[in-house]
């Protein structure tokens, strides 16, 4: 267990190293998820519009 803590401490630079990796994970998840969500939203909106046009 102490081996893990030694590794996680990164020789006293843990705060810097883990902050960078944390920020990167958040940035990449947001970057990856945003266009997929936006595409889904646009298609749902377009489908609703087609529904309205079909109904009128």
């Amino acid at each position: 267990m102490s081996d893990f803590y030694t590794w996680a401490a990164m020789g006293g630079h843990g705060l810097y190293v883990w902050s960078v990796y944390g920020i990167s994970i958040v940035a990449l998840v947001v970057l990856g998820a945003w266009p997929l969500r936006a595409e889904k939203k646009l298609l749902v909106r377009a489908t609703e519009r087609t529904d309205l046009e079909g109904g009128s």
Binding site: L28, L31, G32, W34, P35, E39, L42, A46, R49
Partner: peptide, 19 residues
């Protein structure tokens, strides 16, 4: 990964313009 993100974002842009 970024190539995938840009492709996905391009699909969104295409849908916006061609809806």
């Amino acid at each position: 990964f970024i190539a995938g993100v840009i492709l996905a974002a391009m699909r969104v842009e295409v849908l916006k313009r061609e809806q």
